[in-house]
Nucleic acid binder design. Structure first.
Lengths: 338, 338
DNA sequence: TTGAAAGCGCTACCAG
DNA sequence: CTGGTAGCGCTTTCAA
């Protein structure tokens, strides 16, 4: 039997008789044979994508985000088409360098980027490469045609939250913003501010990136006479911190102060009271990422076939993942005076 | 110029004149040329190792553990020798299957295993393969010679902790144990129990895997008249939960109850009071893992050169990573009556 | 429907 | 010190 027959069979191509096919599959199974990745990639190009995580923030439970994201992505990818590997870099520049290198080494066919920063070195690097890419959590203006975007529908999420708080009767609302160097937190506080405008409420925003800054901002905010009756944070860990600061100041949650975590997580129901939170469907985001990865790869493939510069043209509209309904728990109530 | 010269130059082998070498390097740099991974692996075997994470526990901040571990490992690996990729599986069996598959596909040269379970399917699978492996957080009896082990020095850590609590005057000490299906938590509670024996103290242990079970166990434990004066948990999240339950029962920490987190993390200094904790030097563990990976690979290589069955013989003694000194914060004090 | 053979890009051996 | 070349294991084209 020739190698060609085996190759045809294992790649499910026509031109092999049923008997031969069966025999090949049986023998391959008996011998535990699998094609060598290296040889296959040498011919057909890499069948793997990489997510290079910038791992520089020990704070917060969202550190597991990439793992959850990949879990979701695998559900829409299947192990046979494409594998998704996670790598770690200590800075955006380091991640950019790795991707550049691995692209020229033809190690990966595509890249996934999360936790996008303002002026992100990774995006700049990817632009110079003709690499298919999926950007999670941000929409980049003027992105190449082989990029895909996957974002959460924060607009809807914070509109829901704004209406919820306004209808409870809150008029003085503050947000402890997340990192101003990241795109998503910036967009999220803007979304909440916009959602409150129809109710005639002006959102107060304080910087809250990291526990120290958040604590420093919260103390005066909650001690003032015109203190807010509701506080929204960008993430779960900071919401826990708000609970703590409020307790120290003798403020009862939710009676004297309502608290909302901008990002739901298992930690949000371990606190007392449990935290009302904006849902954060990471696995769903992952599934969308898997689909986007496929789309990016096939766009690149077809453009290459036609002979068009993959960089040219505009990226397709982004895939927006619905967030679902606000998770109301014990940390929110009508304001004391209202 | 011939391809051989280029290959020699880029792999830093002797036999190339300085002028030629420089010229090759310069041109390669100008062209941005890098050797294709696939071609190189086809000749020389894979230059990558994989850590397959079993990602099935949303609870706790230790979910970021694999990322921290890899960060540490990269520091002792360097990007040129060996890359370390993280993959995700939803169960030990799934992880086992992936490793088996990727080994036969010759995709990875070695594997790293963490979060070892009792009767772990991954270890069973790795035994059937002649794959070099690093087991983090557990020592496996009768492991193949190409395995390496990296563990934290829990014995020392819990001896310190036991002495600390006993010397504060605590006599009734309880531990909220972690998962009984995992090797490390089981070993850790045993270590604490052993450390208390010399002081004539018998450790009370309650099951605490997951927040629901921990909460269910804590309520009666802390309500009883002979309630413990000090509680040790296996992880940081559960320690936070203890703080919460104590507060609800009207127990002042640290006056009425001392609390110690068995695993330090950034979350431990965000609570009120901040949590005394057993250090958990994950990055250091990662660096040790990097070294172990190299050792495993070179053992396998030399055995292959000599023609010995790599499975035969015993694994070398495990690399034990020191944990450092107990981190004393605000949640521990002498017991009220003492 | 099957077999033979080229070639992907690299490393390492062997002659010059 | 340098150049030619075999061959890693696969996919795919072309002939039989």
């Amino acid at each position: 039997m020739s190698t060609a027959v085996v190759s045809y069979t294992l790649n499910g191509r026509s031109g092999v008789s049923a008997t031969t096919r069966e025999r090949v599959l049986r023998v391959a199974d008996e011998l535990g044979w699998r094609p060598a990745t290296a040889a296959r990639s040498l011919r057909s190009g890499p069948a793997a994508a990489a997510l290079v995580v910038v791992h520089d923030q020990p704070f917060g439970t969202r550190a597991a985000f990439p793992l959850d994201l990949v879990t979701g992505a695998l559900q829409t990818l299947g192990p046979d088409t494409l594998t998704l590997a996670v790598h770690v870099a200590e800075s955006p520049a380091g991640a950019a360098q790795l991707m550049d290198r691995w692209w020229t080494e033809r190690r990966y066919a595509a890249f996934v980027v999360t936790g996008v920063r303002v002026d992100d070195a990774r995006l700049a690097a990817l632009r110079t490469l003709p690499a298919p890419a999926v950007v999670v959590g941000a929409v980049v203006d003027g992105a190449p045609a082989t990029w895909q975007h996957v974002v959460l529908d924060d607009g809807d999420a914070f509109a829901q939250l704004g209406a919820f708080l306004a209808e409870l009767g809150h008029r003085r609302i503050a947000m402890v913003a997340g990192s101003e160097h990241h795109v998503a937190p910036v967009r999220r506080s803007a979304a909440l501010a916009a959602a409150l405008v129809p109710f005639g409420i002006e959102l107060r925003t304080v910087a809250g990136d990291g526990p120290e800054r958040a604590a420093a901002a919260l103390r005066p905010l909650l001690s003032a006479s015109d203190r807010p009756t509701a506080i929204v944070t960008d993430d779960d860990a900071t919401a826990g911190l708000v609970l703590d600061v409020a307790r120290r100041l003798g403020l009862g949650v939710p009676w004297d102060l309502s608290v909302v975590a901008g990002t739901d997580s298992p930690a949000c129901y371990l606190t007392t009271p449990s935290l009302t939170a904006v849902p954060y469907p990471v696995e769903e985001l992952g599934r969308a990422t898997g689909r986007a990865l496929r789309a990016a790869l096939s766009t690149a493939a077809s453009r290459r076939a036609v002979g068009v510069d993959p960089t040219e043209g505009e990226a397709p509209p982004s895939g927006t993942v619905p967030v679902g309904r606000l998770v109301v728990r014990g940390s929110t109530a009508p304001p004391a005076g209202g």
